[in-house]
Design a protein around this nucleic acid. Structure first.
Length: 451
DNA sequence: AAAGACATCAACCGCCTGGGA
DNA sequence: CTCCCAGGCGGTTGATGTCTT
C-alpha cells in the first residue's frame, strides 16, 4: 500500500493552486466534464495528479458552492447530524447544499467542537461532559464511525444570543421494548419544536446503527413516501429529497455535475445564451433552458423557515437566500422574469461573502456584500467566486483580463442574478422500515428548513 | 510595532471500497 | 480469486490570516 500511483509521477505540482491552474481546470471541466480524473490533468495541461484536480474541483471550483460563513441554522444542523452520523462528513455535507465535507470538517474541528465543550457537551458523544467524565467514557466508540453512538442526554445547541439560550433537551427516555420512540424537545432561537426520535436511533447498537447508516446513505438518494402508519411522527415534514436531493445527488456524486462529455453542457449555447448572464451559476442547464412554470410559493414546515419556491418541470426550486429583514425583494430569473422573494441571493448563495447570523466573529458577519465591495477587490477575492472565473474560462479570457473587468462588473449582482437553487422532486417510492431512522435526518433538515 | 498565540482553511496523505481484467 | 486502478473519504498538516499581549 502507499501512495496513489499518480503521485509517483514526476514533476507534479503540489500545494496551493494558482489562478492559472484553476482556470485551466475549470475550463476543461466545463467543456468536457471530468471523465476519468486521472486523465484530467494531462488533458487540461496541468502538472497535478488527478486526485488533486478532483479535490480542487469539489472543494473550490464547483459552481454550486455556497461561499461565506455558516449560518446558525447550518451549525445547528451540523451538530445534530453529527450526533447521528458521527464523523461522516460527506453524509453530513449531503444535507447542506453548497457545503463540502472538507468545509464542514474544518468547521467542526476548529469551531463547533470548541463551542460544544464550552457549553459542557462532549463533542464526540454529544453527552454532557460531566457524564462522560464520570464513566461515560466507556461509551466511547473505538472508531470514528461509531463515535456518535451515544445519542442521548441533553444537547445544547449553539446560539449566538446568549440571552436566549438555545437548549435542545434530549429528554433521554430510555428506550423500552414498548415505546417505539423517544421524544425530545428542541428550543431553537425561541421556537420550540417537539420531536420524536425512533428508538432504533436512540438505542442503536453498533450493528443496527451501521445498518441504519448504510440505509441512510442509500436512502438519501432515494425518494421516500411516508406511509400512514409511519407518518404519525413525521407530520410537518416532507421527504428530504424535496429539500435538497437534487443538489445532494450532485454533491455526493460529482460525476453528475458534469457529464463525461460536454454534450449537455454546451458552453456556447446553454450557459451563455438566452440572455442569461454568463456569471449565472450553471446549477442546472435544464433549468436555464427550460420554460418556466411557476407555481405558488410553498411554505416549508416550521413557519419560521418558510422559503419561497416554485417548480420547473417537476423540479422544485427554493430561493437561495433565507429570509432576512434587510434583503432585496426581487431577483431575476434566467428568463428575465422577476420573482418576488424575501431573501437575498447575495447573502446565501455562492456569491456570499458573509452572513449576518454566522458562527464566526461579529466582525466577519459584517463583511460587506459584493455590491459594496471596494473597486480594488483583490485577485484572490475575485478568484473565490468560481462563477466569475468560469465566465472567464468560458469566454477564453485570461483571469487577469477578467480581473481588469471586475471593477465594472461589481454592480451586476444587484440586478442580474437569481438566487435559485434547483431541488428535484423525485418520484416517490414506498418507505422502507429502516428509513425511519433516515427520516430523523429528514426531520432535522426539514426543521431547519432551507439552509 | 513586534512577537507569540490562536483560528482558519486549502490541500495532502493514507486507507478503503468497488469495478474490471 | 487475485490484482490493479480509480474514486472517495476522513484525518492531519502546514500556510496564512487575525487577534492578543
Amino acid at each position: 500500500m502507499g501512495r496513489h500511483s499518480c503521485c509517483y509521477k514526476q514533476k507534479l505540482r503540489k500545494g496551493l493552486w494558482s489562478p492559472e491552474e484553476d482556470e485551466k481546470l475549470l475550463r476543461h471541466i466545463t467543456k468536457y466534464g471530468h471523465g476519468c480524473w486521472s486523465s484530467v490533468p494531462k488533458q487540461a495541461g496541468l502538472q497535478r495528479c488527478g486526485k488533486s484536480c478532483r479535490l480542487r474541483w469539489i472543494n473550490y471550483l464547483r459552481p454550486d458552492l455556497k461561499r461565506g460563513t455558516f449560518s446558525q441554522q447550518e451549525e445547528n444542523l451540523i451538530i445534530e447530524l453529527h450526533a447521528v452520523l458521527g464523523n461522516r462528513w460527506s453524509q453530513i455535507a449531503a444535507q447542506l447544499p453548497g457545503r463540502t465535507d472538507n468545509e464542514i470538517k474544518n468547521l467542526w474541528n476548529s469551531c463547533l467542537k470548541k463551542k460544544l465543550r464550552q457549553r459542557g457537551i462532549d463533542p464526540v458523544t454529544h453527552k454532557p461532559l460531566s457524564e462522560v467524565e464520570n464513566g461515560g467514557g466507556k461509551h466511547q466508540p473505538t472508531n470514528s464511525q461509531d463515535k456518535s453512538s451515544g445519542v442521548s442526554g441533553e444537547l445544547n445547541l449553539l446560539n449566538t444570543d446568549s440571552s436566549k439560550p438555545a437548549v435542545a433537551s434530549l429528554h433521554d427516555q430510555k428506550p423500552t421494548s414498548i415505546a417505539p420512540q423517544s421524544s425530545y424537545q428542541l428550543d431553537i432561537e425561541g421556537s420550540s419544536i417537539s420531536r420524536t426520535i425512533s428508538n432504533s436511533l436512540m438505542n442503536s447498537t453498533a450493528t443496527n446503527k451501521d445498518f441504519f447508516l448504510d440505509r441512510f446513505a442509500t436512502s438519501t438518494h432515494e425518494s421516500t413516501t411516508t406511509t400512514d402508519s409511519q407518518s404519525a411522527n413525521l407530520v410537518g415534514h416532507f421527504p428530504l429529497q424535496q429539500l435538497n436531493c437534487g443538489s445532494n445527488a450532485r454533491l455526493s456524486n460529482p460525476a453528475l455535475w458534469f457529464p463525461h462529455t460536454s454534450k449537455s453542457f454546451d458552453t456556447n449555447s446553454e450557459f451563455t445564451s438566452s440572455g442569461v448572464s454568463t456569471i449565472l451559476p450553471p446549477v442546472s442547464t435544464s433549468f436555464l433552458s427550460s420554460p418556466m412554470d411557476f407555481k405558488a410559493p410553498v411554505t416549508l414546515p416550521q413557519d419560521n423557515h418558510s422559503i419561497p419556491s416554485f417548480t420547473i418541470n417537476g423540479s422544485r426550486y427554493w430561493e437561495a437566500g433565507a429570509p432576512t429583514s434587510n434583503s432585496n425583494s426581487t431577483s431575476v430569473s434566467s428568463s428575465g422574469t422577476e420573482l418576488q422573494t424575501n431573501g437575498s441571493f447575495f447573502e446565501n448563495s455562492i456569491f456570499s461573502w458573509g452572513l449576518a447570523d454566522c458562527s464566526s466573529t461579529e466582525k466577519e458577519s459584517q463583511i460587506p456584500l459584493m455590491e459594496s465591495q471596494p473597486a480594488d477587490m483583490k485577485w484572490p477575492e475575485y478568484f473565490h467566486n468560481p462563477s466569475l472565473l468560469m465566465a472567464a474560462a468560458l469566454q477564453n479570457q485570461t483571469p487577469q483580463s477578467i480581473y481588469n473587468e471586475i471593477k465594472s462588473e461589481t454592480h451586476f449582482l444587484t440586478d442580474s442574478s437569481s438566487g435559485i437553487w434547483p431541488h428535484n422532486q423525485q418520484q416517490q417510492e414506498p418507505l422502507q422500515d429502516s428509513d425511519i431512522c433516515a427520516k430523523e435526518i429528514q426531520k432535522l433538515t426539514a426543521t431547519y428548513g432551507h439552509i
